[in-house]
Computed example of a mutant assay.
Amino acid sequence: MGLDVSAFSKLVEAPDAERDEHGDLVDYDNYRDFYFNKDFPGRAEGLKEGMTYKLGEEGSGLSTGYGRYSAWRDELAKLAGYTPDASPSDEYEKRFPHFGGANRAGEGPFYEQILFSDCDGTIGPVVSAKLAKDYADLAEKAEAVGGYFWEKYQEWKVAFEVASDGGAVVFH
Rank of each mutant, 00 (worst) to 15 (best):
D74R: 00
Y28L: 15
I123S: 02
G65M: 13
D24R: 07
P88M: 12
S117Y: 05
R95N: 09
F36D: 02
G121N: 03
A17S: 07
P84L: 03
G46P: 04
Y53T: 00
G67Y: 03
L76G: 06
F110S: 05
D90A: 13
E57S: 13
L25K: 14
Q113M: 15
F34K: 03
T52E: 01
D29R: 15
F99C: 01
E13N: 05
Y53N: 01
A71M: 07
R32S: 08
P84G: 01
L11G: 06
A136F: 09
E75R: 14
A80C: 10
G67W: 00
G108K: 04
F116P: 01
F40P: 03
C119H: 11
P97F: 03
E57T: 10
E93T: 15
P88G: 09
D90C: 15
K94P: 02
P125V: 04
E58R: 15
E91Y: 01
R68Y: 07
A136H: 12
A102W: 06
L62F: 10
Y35T: 11
Y35S: 12
E93W: 14
L25S: 15
L131V: 12
V26L: 00
Y53F: 06
E45R: 12
G121H: 06
D29Q: 14
L79C: 04
Y66T: 13
G61Q: 14
N103Y: 14
Y92C: 00
G67A: 04
D24K: 10
P125A: 10
D134G: 08
Y111G: 02
S60Y: 11
E58T: 10
D33F: 09
E107W: 00
A80I: 10
R73C: 15
S89L: 13
K38D: 07
G61P: 05
H98M: 08
S60C: 13
C119K: 10
Y135C: 05
S63A: 15
K38E: 11
Y66Q: 12
W72F: 12
D29I: 06
L62I: 09
F110E: 02
S60K: 11
L115S: 12
E21L: 07
A44E: 10
A77E: 01
H22A: 06
N30A: 02
S87V: 15
F36Q: 03
E112V: 02
E58H: 10
G67M: 02
E75P: 07
S70F: 12
D137H: 09
W72G: 15
Y111I: 01
A132H: 07
G65L: 12
Y92M: 08
G65T: 14
L131A: 08
P109I: 11
R43S: 11
F34A: 06
P97S: 00
V126P: 00
Y69N: 13
K94A: 06
L11D: 04
N30T: 04
L11P: 07
P109A: 12
S89C: 06
L138I: 01
E57I: 09
G59A: 08
A71H: 05
K38Y: 09
N37R: 02
A129K: 13
H98N: 14
N37Y: 05
F116D: 05
D24E: 14
A86P: 10
A80H: 05
F40E: 07
T83C: 09
L25Q: 15
D134F: 04
Y66N: 12
R19L: 07
L115D: 14
